[in-house]
Design a binder for these strands. Structure first.
Lengths: 166, 166
DNA sequence: TGATTTGGTTTTTTAACGCAACTAAAATAC
DNA sequence: GTATTTTAGTTGCGTTAAAAAACCAAATCA
């Protein structure tokens, strides 16, 4: 019996979490964002077990988050890069970083600062904005079934569950 | 041999991932955001095993993401709510949802739409913005050691690792 | 009064994790 | 020209956490 997959949830969060919702995948993606490219770099930076790293890279490649490129023809030397799909996960990563900056390390103690390369100034805090660009608090939002919704979306997004080998 | 904790990484992503970087925690938080409050509601909506749910709720409470309130004095009836700390994770959740909307379900097939309650219009796509409010692509950002950085932050953020029972 | 709901805990099984050792080819050092 | 190191993994094994199901006790509903 394999672990529970979230594949059949009709829910974007669940499906996204199924792909990147584990510690090592998230850290690998962070590492890619910061410039790491190779198996050894990830291994050195993260200290993750090699089989786990192998498994996660595979999964990220299969899900087209990362692309594996051969760096020299005919030789087993590879590098990993974001696909378009993968690079659009960066806001997720940055939102997580910023939360940790604020609530774990605290103002003025951020381990890492992200800057606009052109101006050198720090990027903005990631926020939820209304259509006209105003920050929205959580209780100023409402959820409604989207165009692709099935009937029971708001009362339950518990879809069928499945066993997968992944 | 216990699982590796990311507690000693001097990295906001790692530390945040250590708290919410697993499927069920993320789904519980989504569920809270959408209005669920009780153990039974989470269990019904998510279909998660009760012991796992119990464990995750506990962890989220211990980490002050959620607050457990007794709903009737002297009786075992509880409800779970975001703390301030927890509610600031919502941008992370929404960024994940939006990624799934786009890359898993596809434009026009979103299971759920989030709206500005006042106007009824959908919220904006979450983006990384420069100080002057312009969207930044990934290669237009640079990382530099923050005010709380230790010396080796960019070459390696592999801190000491520890075994924890958590 | 008997069934159901609520909020869990306990028990058992199984899959995932972590570690160390191994492989095999290429690159570098001596 | 041989030896060591680096790269990119795979294999095997023991441990641990997750999943499923059963159980529990108090409160509430029918």
């Amino acid at each position: 019996m394999t672990r529970t997959s979230l594949n059949h949830f009709h829910c974007s969060m669940a499906r996204t979490a199924d792909i990147i919702g584990d510690k090592w995948s998230l850290l690998i993606l962070r590492d890619v964002f910061l410039g790491s490219k190779t198996f050894s770099q990830f291994q050195k930076n993260l200290g993750v077990a090699r089989n786990i790293l192998s498994d996660r890279l595979d999964k990220l490649v299969r899900n087209e988050i990362l692309e594996r490129r051969r760096t020299r023809p005919g030789v087993e030397r590879y590098s990993y890069h974001f696909t378009d799909r993968g690079s659009e996960l960066v806001p997720v990563l940055i939102a997580m970083m910023q939360w940790g900056d604020r609530w774990i390390f605290g103002e003025g103690k951020e381990p890492l600062e992200l800057n606009d390369q052109k101006t050198g100034r720090p990027i903005q805090l990631i926020k939820v904005l209304s259509a006209d660009g105003k920050p929205l608090a959580n209780d100023e939002m409402s959820a409604s079934p989207g165009s692709g919704a099935d009937s029971s979306i708001l009362t339950s997004f518990h879809g069928k569950r499945s066993k997968v080998s992944d």
